[in-house]
């Protein structure tokens, strides 16, 4: 990561610190108490602001130097994986663990594989067997209650 990114992180840190401080002001208080529930958040907000300011300063002063990686970054895939996570959480309760995990596993395998690694039949088998085995392991062996969803 270049030093200029540190400056950006510094700014983000300062914004978070300011938000934390403002949020702390609204915390309820008991009269005549030395320190209340707002004390520690305020201290951390101040420290975070100072540290972020130092990071911003360091990042601003240092020269930017981009070190190129010798592989292509798949940012689109990362974003799609993030979307897949959200979809997985959204359908987890409704469809149940088994079905949602099958869908997730199939999509995740496609996102994580290079073109030459994609074998649909193999992936379907992994998604189905993987979900069933994990479901049985946790519900039957470990006694974890997983949502059955529409299959329940």
């Amino acid at each position: 990561m270049t030093k200029n990114h540190d400056a950006i992180c510094g700014v983000i840190g300062m914004v978070i610190a300011a938000a934390l401080f403002m949020g702390s002001v609204q915390i309820g208080k008991i009269e005549n108490q030395t320190i209340g529930a707002d004390f520690m958040p305020k201290i951390v907000a101040v420290l975070l602001f100072i540290l972020s300011a130092v990071l911003f300063n360091q990042g601003r002063k240092a020269p930017a130097g981009q070190k190129k990686d010798d592989f292509v970054h798949n940012y689109k895939g990362t974003f799609l994986m993030f979307v897949l996570f959200i979809v997985y959480v959204a359908i987890f309760d409704t469809l149940g663990f088994l079905l949602s995990s099958m869908i997730y596993l199939m999509c995740a395998l496609l996102l994580l594989s290079r073109k030459e690694e994609i074998h649909y039949i193999k992936f379907i088998a992994i998604a189905v067997i993987g979900s069933v085995v994990i479901n049985l392991l946790f519900t039957e062996v470990f006694g974890v209650n997983l949502p059955a969803g529409i299959l329940g």
């Binding site: 997985y88 995990s101 997730y104 596993l105 995740a108 395998l109 690694e117 993987g130 974890v144 997983l146």
Partner: peptide, 24 residues
């Protein structure tokens, strides 16, 4: 393979997180 391993690890993580308090 990394693609299979990471996909399955994620499912374990989801179950682990869910199992902590039984909530999505």
């Amino acid at each position: 393979k990394q693609n299979v391993l990471m996909s399955i690890v994620m499912v374990f993580c989801v179950v682990g997180a869910y199992g902590a308090n039984n909530r999505v």
